[in-house]
């Protein structure tokens, strides 16, 4: 193989790597800019923006298994809810009120729920997989409902009073601290996920989404890879859930509901499956519209979600971000 050396000099690994980092920086800048704009545009509605951040983490986590690995699941709220309850119970019953510790406990709770869900859901394929995913979210919901000593059952879990962050920043009445804390969390996780999805592991997951048979013919374990991704996804969703518990100081049973799972899927699809930006944009648009509509007429919300879903499937199967990205790509190619 005498060509080895020449080809190594032809292809410089550096440009790809540095352009990756550049795009990460642009991504961080966009998130920061949006956060600042949101802060000044809706100073009285920071709670809504903060909830958006928690849900963004949840939808990002769903994107990892659905978008990057191709697992269609309707039970992903189990991971989010597990994180929320883990953090909430730690605070309300065991006096663990240090916020960063609570987030870490939520991450562990989410990871455990991710492991359990992953093992169960990946047992089947196709319809069986879907059935397992729906059954598991109902199972978690019922379990939380019955364990009301710890979870507060259908009344929800209250009495979560987090300490100041690092002992310095107290959670204020206007939710400024929670908002800034959320943005920091989001940016950290976004960067880590960017690294994850372009890592060898991320590449392997993309392969599994497209052809699991080919992946196993390469000698990789499809199942073990997917379960690992489920655990990672659980960490992210768990952090989202825990952050929601910290910022709202309550955990409701609806965080573990089928509807919550389905709505996360809607947000993901709305934004664009398989891209991190898609997950973020889908969440912003969905929760923005939800807030607007339920202010006008809460009755029609479910109908609108349904119609939105149908419309996305029919007219923008790549989602908002995916469609926009495709347009830009075509424009670029045309320009060249």
């Amino acid at each position: 193989m005498s060509i080895t050396n020449t080809s190594a000099t032809i292809i410089q690994p550096l440009p790809a790597a540095s352009s990756n980092w550049l795009r990460d920086l642009v991504g961080i800048a966009i998130i920061l800019a949006a956060a600042i704009v949101g802060y000044f545009l809706f100073p009285n509605n920071l709670a809504l923006l903060t909830r958006m951040i928690a849900i963004m983490l949840f939808v990002l986590s769903l994107d990892l298994v659905t978008g990057y690995c191709g697992v269609a699941t309707l039970g992903h709220a189990a991971l989010f809810g597990a994180g929320a309850y883990a953090a909430g119970i730690a605070a309300a019953h065991f006096g663990v009120t240090e916020p960063i510790t609570m987030i870490a406990i939520g991450a562990v709770g989410g990871a455990v729920a991710g492991l359990v869900s992953g093992v169960v859901i990946l047992r089947g394929h196709g319809l069986a997989q879907l059935v397992l995913s729906i059954a598991i979210i109902h199972l978690f919901h019922e379990a939380a409902n019955k364990a009301s000593n710890y979870t507060g059952g259908s009344d929800g879990l209250a009495g979560i009073t987090p300490d100041p962050i690092l002992g310095l920043f107290e959670f204020d009445l206007w939710g400024r601290t929670a908002y800034v804390f959320g943005i920091v969390l989001l940016i950290v996780i976004f960067v880590l996920l960017r690294i994850l999805v372009r890592s060898p592991f991320g590449l392997l997951c993309r392969g599994i989404r497209q052809d699991p048979v080919r992946v196993s013919a390469m000698g990789a374990s499809v199942k073990r890879t997917l379960i690992k991704m489920y655990v990672i996804s659980g960490v992210v969703a768990g952090i989202g859930g825990a952050f929601n518990a910290v910022s709202t100081q309550v955990v409701g049973l609806d965080s573990l509901s089928f509807t919550n799972s389905a709505e996360a899927l809607v947000m993901l699809v709305l934004g664009g499956v398989g891209t991190l930006f898609g997950a973020l944009i889908g969440t912003i648009v969905f929760i923005g519209v939800e807030d607007f509509v339920s202010a006008a007429n809460p009755f029609h919300w479910l109908t609108i979600v349904g119609a939105l879903l149908i419309a996305v499937v029919l007219f923008a199967p790549k989602g908002l971000y995916g469609t926009a990205a495709a347009l830009v790509e075509r424009y670029r190619k045309g320009g060249k």
């Binding site: 392997l204 390469m218 890879t225 990672i232």
Partner: peptide, 18 residues
């Protein structure tokens, strides 16, 4: 990806093959 898999590096969650 095939090379990474062969070398047992396909599970790495950071870094890129480039």
């Amino acid at each position: 990806l095939a090379i990474l898999q062969r070398e047992g590096k396909s599970g790495r969650v950071a870094g890129t093959f480039q």
